[in-house]
């Protein structure tokens, strides 16, 4: 590999720059979060005071709690429903309309789904709150879970199911003993994906949220912080968010690799 020709070297240099482009801005925020003045204009010394301020910021902590509730609930709902849907779709070649229905929430622009749900909830005169965000997030999460789980079925030999039923096992036992172990890695990966999507989602939550801090999610809080003033606390928030999501991605990749092996 060392015998790289000029084209190859150019490509590698380019790839390096792409990584710089992708990570540069993130690194800048991380560095700034430790800057005493908190401003990008000058380095005024190392400090963790912004993290201290953050820990005392009840608005942010409250928003994180709300986001966790939404993410856990919508993940739980969509993992169950999405997995069932995937099993149903894999039982026989699904109708193209069904395929399209499952693909739709993944490609429809967020803003469209957001206003559609707001109009719908408003027509029903439904009281909005965290529960309406959960309902909304489950829409796209069901689609993502279903798609991810279905890829696991590609490894699945359907004759085992038939064999199991022939041997007199009930449908549920077959599911628990035969199907589930095969698709479990897919289900876990799907749940992780759903969780990540939900916890980062902003626009749909913004439109379907109810009044008050009791239904302000973490991304909504971040948006308000960006819109309302450049408080350096946001750099500390950014650093923590980056850290957590990188760890999550790392874990899910590890999980995937062990499964593949």
């Amino acid at each position: 590999m060392s015998a790289a020709n000029p084209t190859q070297r150019w490509l590698q240099a380019h790839l390096g720059l792409v990584y710089l482009f992708l990570y540069g801005p993130i690194i800048v925020l991380i560095v700034l979060s430790f800057n005493r003045a908190g401003l990008p204009t000058a380095w005024t010394g190392f400090s963790t005071e912004w993290y201290g301020k953050l820990a005392a910021n009840t608005k942010i902590i409250n928003a994180v709690q709300n986001s966790l509730i939404v993410a856990f609930a919508s993940t739980a709902i969509s993992t169950v429903i999405g997995t069932l849907l995937a099993m149903g779709m894999e039982a026989r070649r699904p109708h193209p309309a069904l395929e399209a229905l499952v693909a739709a929430p993944m490609i429809i622009p967020d803003i469209v789904l957001a206003i559609a749900l707001l109009s719908f909830f408003s027509l029903l005169k439904m009281t909005l709150g965290l529960h309406s965000i959960i309902l909304a997030h489950a829409v796209f999460n069901i689609a993502f879970v279903c798609t991810v789980v279905r890829t696991r079925f590609k490894h699945f030999d359907r004759s085992i199911v038939e064999a199991s039923i022939d041997l007199g096992a009930g449908a549920f036992t077959t599911f628990r003993r035969v199907t589930l172990p095969v698709i479990a890695p897919g289900v876990i990966a799907a749940a992780l994906l759903a969780f990540t999507l939900s916890i980062d989602e902003f626009i749909i939550a913004y439109f379907t949220a109810g009044p008050g801090s009791s239904s302000t999610t973490f991304p909504m809080q971040i948006y308000a912080m960006i819109r309302f003033g450049v408080t350096p606390e946001i750099n500390a928030v950014a650093t923590i968010v980056m850290g957590v999501s990188f760890v999550l991605v790392f874990l899910s990749q590890r999980l995937n690799r062990e499964v593949e092996a």
């Binding site: 993130i26 991304p219 960006i226 450049v230 950014a238």
Partner: peptide, 15 residues
Amino acid sequence: PFWSNYLIRTYAWIV
């Protein structure tokens, strides 16, 4: 980077 918050990544460019 795609898996971390889009708002924060956008904010980085304001900085």
